[in-house]
Simulated scan of single mutants.
Amino acid sequence: MDTERAGIQSVEVGFALLEVLTHSRGPLMLKDLAAAAGMSAAKAHRYLVSFQRLQLVIQDSRSSRYDLGPAALKLGLASLSRIDAVRMARERVPRIMEQLGHTVALAVWGNRGPTIVHWEEAPLAMTAHLRLGDVMPLLSSATGRCFGAWLPREKTAALIGEELGHAAHHRRHDGLPHNLDEVSMLYEEIRQHGCARVVDTLLPGISAFCAPVFDSDGHLVMGITTLGSSATLDPAWGGQVDAGLRAAAHQLSSDLGWVAPRPSAD
């Protein structure tokens, strides 16, 4: 049993080196890698020798720097291939709903547009008549605006054209864009905020936010929407609902392998 415990502890200690390489911006010298992992260079070197044999780590022959190896890449890709984004999100919906205090829904892109695949109504929530399989409009719903802002335009162009034509024919209210230039401005504003919002736009008396969820390639895979009565849901950018929803979506994206782009230095 003592030998078994030592072996397990040894794996955990050695994994600290892999963890450092995972979060570093590039290959590291032995002394820097060891210091970041909280161990001596001699101790780190022993682990790295074994990791190299397993191809979890490689060492550049010219710079002597260490980096993650092909076996680490294979493990990462295998893990990502087993992740079910919707399943992961569904497991978190009750907690997100409890934190926000409002109904939470999940939507994915279907053959007719953003489609509700799961939702959970908050206690005492105003009924919003959501149903599984509902397809949300791209211009008047928070969910649709989220997908419109982050999906490639070739995927959404036809549906946007249909909605603009319908709005012009029925002379819809001024809360909606009236032409493609206004649509582009709306989506650019959404991307700047990192979240889509509507207030009394699709349904009178209902406000909503929708935050994007990205996969390891940076592709939009899902929208997480929260909605509630405009009298009780905080509609402010950076408010409790907006910030909480974006944090939940960001964490889910991170768990799916997405790495947020670093802000550019001016």
Rank of each mutant, 00 (worst) to 15 (best):
R95I: 06
R95N: 07
R95D: 09
I96E: 01
M97C: 11
M97R: 15
E98R: 08
E98Q: 12
Q99H: 15
L100V: 05
L100K: 04
L100E: 03
L100N: 04
H102V: 04
H102Q: 13
T103E: 02
T103A: 03
T103V: 07
T103W: 01
V104W: 00
V104S: 01
L106I: 14
A107K: 06
V108R: 13
W109K: 12
W109T: 14
W109Y: 14
G110Q: 10
N111D: 15
N111E: 15
N111G: 06
N111C: 09
N111Y: 10
R112Q: 15
R112M: 13
R112A: 14
R112C: 12
R112N: 14
G113M: 11
G113Y: 11
G113N: 11
P114T: 07
T115I: 09
I116S: 01
V117A: 04
H118Y: 14
W119T: 02
E120F: 01
E120T: 02
E121W: 00
A122M: 03
P123I: 00
P123Q: 00
L124M: 00
L124I: 00
L124W: 00
L124Q: 00
A125E: 03
A125Q: 03
M126S: 08
M126A: 09
A128H: 11
A128M: 15
H129Q: 03
H129D: 03
H129F: 04
H129W: 02
H129S: 04
L130G: 03
L130Y: 12
L130C: 05
L130W: 13
L132M: 10
D134F: 10
D134R: 08
V135T: 14
M136C: 15
M136F: 14
M136P: 12
M136T: 13
L139Y: 07
L139N: 06
S140E: 04
S140K: 04
S140G: 05
S141F: 07
S141Q: 05
S141M: 06
S141W: 03
S141C: 05
S141Y: 04
A142N: 09
A142K: 08
A142M: 08
T143M: 14
T143N: 13
G144W: 12
G144T: 12
